[in-house]
Amino acid sequence: MHIVVCAKQVPDTAEVRVDPETNTLIREGVPSIMNPYDAHAVEEAMRLKDKYGGKVTVISMGPPQAEEVLRQAISFGVDDAILLSDRAFGGSDTLATSYILTNGIKKLDEQEKVDLIICGKQAIDGDTAQVGPGIAVRLNIPQLTYVMEIVELNLEEKTIKVARKLEGQKEIVQAPLPALLTVVKDINELRYASLPNKIRAARFKAMVWNKDDFPGIDPEQIGLKGSPTAVRKIFPPPERGEGEIIPGGMENPEQATATLVEKLVKQEIIADK
């Protein structure tokens, strides 16, 4: 069995701050990490490998420094990792990105048939959740999104049964392989890198595929040209109108609270039932 995991390097959005003077993002010093959902995708692939054997390949599109996330994947024990990197890929939106990754996966498939593709449910920098389904559509295979559990993998019949996390309930669905899954964090707990894998990761140099490695790639579908969406404007989040601070909260909390409650009831914000 050959499992491919798509992983992305992202800025740690928890560390991103906005310069209040200029309203621009302060990116300096913001660490780059493996997209947290993708880490769970790698983990799930490794669990399947532990159980059923086979091979796990991680693929990432990004600038040369994105090799770091591949190294991290190696430290989790994956067999191989490929970086798709080319200036011509820069500026790709989700449509172009799914096209490029699909080309990469097809190339892997030629080398060794791919049975399962696992992605994180979304990347925390863009939060779009569009790339995984985009790949599934392009490969014309089933997409199973928001997977919280792999219920059954049947290698004889080549089917997979999963639980999808929906609002307030879970859905059990079955699909033939090859299929593409996107996973939520609930699916597993991440493992720690073992020492031998850490050593392997430290020495690891990822294979880099660029545009020229894909003779059939359509230049109209990659990079800025292949991206229908464009950012028109960046602006600070909207502010709400001036609020009213009820005075005396520190000195006389009972009085301040009484004033507040009276306002809420009088203005029928809280209705008297």
């Binding site: 502010e239 709400r240 609020g243 009213e244 601070i245 009820i246 909260g249 520190m250 909390p253 009972e254 301040a256 609270t257 009484a258 507040l260 409650v261 009276e262 306002k263 809420l264 009831v265 809280i270 008297d272 039932k273």
Partner: peptide, 25 residues
């Protein structure tokens, strides 16, 4: 973002709210 705010200790304000809302409602 608050429409109404009380700057104070919640351990005093919340019990007072409970008391006041009980009374009002």
């Amino acid at each position: 973002v608050a429409t109404f705010g009380i700057q104070g200790d919640l351990f005093k304000v919340v019990p007072a709210m409970i008391k006041e809302f009980r009374k009002q409602l």
